[in-house]
Design a protein around this nucleic acid. Structure first.
Lengths: 218, 218
DNA sequence: CATTAAAATTGGTATGACAAGATCGATATT
DNA sequence: AATATCGATCTTGTCATACCAATTTTAATG
């Protein structure tokens, strides 16, 4: 870790063979390998059998596993995270309205068309839905936002799935997306923010209602 | 991981000895231990020599390491994260104003007094500063906010340190804290939000100015 | 020069052994 | 009888060695 931070080891660089590296560090291969597994689980190292060990760039996915572990231990936390995510996403819509490039606008629009196509083919458009929110995060020109959304996308898959499984919901979501996109394209931050907030609260309300109906039929 | 999620293994539970567990899983102790190291690095397992292996609750600190690894790879990301943190913290002040209990208000007030005492004793009050922001996060009644702030506190230690090392800054920060506290205590969400926003932007502006002066003297 | 097969390299797993620390029970003391 | 102390036993931490499987490199071949 220290050697990576100081730049002594660059991303993509190949480490010496385990037997050599263990010797350099003055430990057995067993101990070295246990250390490598720890580094691998946090995404710093990638091992390929026969190929060697490489320094790896830490991606959001590597944070997702322990993050999910933490959430699964605490149901209350899951609800709180949804609230944080909603708050961030509303702000991202506002930032995207003022910062998005033409290419990014095109990509956002593309995700809406994709979602529409997915629905016409009988799907619920969850993939396009995810992409829509991720592209807006990217358009906010803030990497941290993108990473957080990417991280939460996996964790909130269940929630989003449930929302889109409500009859008629996918079509409503697409209309919301068009509305949000229009506000972002016109550079109207306040309207984009309001539209996104309404979209998220409506979707969640629908989810709550649908769960209550489900409970009644039981 | 699966056994933890399904509740088959509860937090705090002791695992069988490595030799037994390895036998149960049909692998060698070597392989089992490599798996344990991976689980340990993400906080799911805690090992004590002679004592055994225990299922551990995943705390924010365990996320901090890979998070820091990711940030150290990308300088631009660090600036983006500061922006996200500022945005979240402003909102937390607002939420604290509407949700804080009397006990939490007392704790927030306590951190200001602590910071004042630290400064009188010649310190820069960074510890009290950190505690102030953390207590507000807790008062927002949203666990996710607390975790995020706790996570970022370690990463932003450098930035906060630099800010408080500016002559006269600690005293100014204390005054800001009193102002923010007053707004939260009175339940005035809008004022609390504004005061926090001003506090953070002022602090950062001071930091930028101080860095420019430093550069000029070089 | 391209193809292919053999050889060397490298990570993955297994086994046995010993050291260091923790736990628990027997024994001695108060 | 309660408590303190010490030692046997258990458990993790580390190491050395060996072998397997996948990959890469090298050399031979057409």
């Amino acid at each position: 870790m220290r050697r990576i931070r100081t730049g002594e080891l660059a991303v993509g660089q190949k480490l010496p063979p385990e037997r050599v590296l263990a010797d350099q560090l003055g430990v057995s291969r067993t101990s070295l390998r246990e250390a490598l597994r720890a580094l691998e689980s946090m995404g710093c190292v990638r091992s390929t059998v026969g190929g060697g060990n490489y320094i790896n760039s830490v991606s959001p996915e590597h944070l997702a596993l322990p993050f999910a572990a933490m959430m699964s231990q605490d149901k209350e936390l899951a609800a709180d995270i949804i609230q944080v995510r909603q708050y961030l996403e509303v702000h991202m819509a506002s930032m995207a309205a003022t910062h998005a490039t033409k290419e990014q606008l095109a990509r956002i629009y593309g995700t809406i068309l994709d979602m529409q196509a997915q629905i016409e083919q009988g799907g619920n458009g969850i993939e396009g839905d995810n992409q829509f929110h991720l592209e807006i995060a990217k358009a906010s020109q803030n990497k941290a936002f993108s990473i957080i959304i990417e991280l939460l996308a996996g964790l909130l898959a269940e929630s989003r799935q449930a929302t889109l499984d409500i009859p008629g919901q996918p079509a409503k979501s697409v209309m919301d997306h068009f509305e949000i996109f229009a506000a972002i394209e016109s550079g109207d931050a306040a309207t984009a923010e309001a539209a996104m907030a309404e979209h998220l609260t409506k979707a969640q309300q629908n989810l709550v209602d649908s769960r209550m109906e489900k409970k009644e039929t039981e």
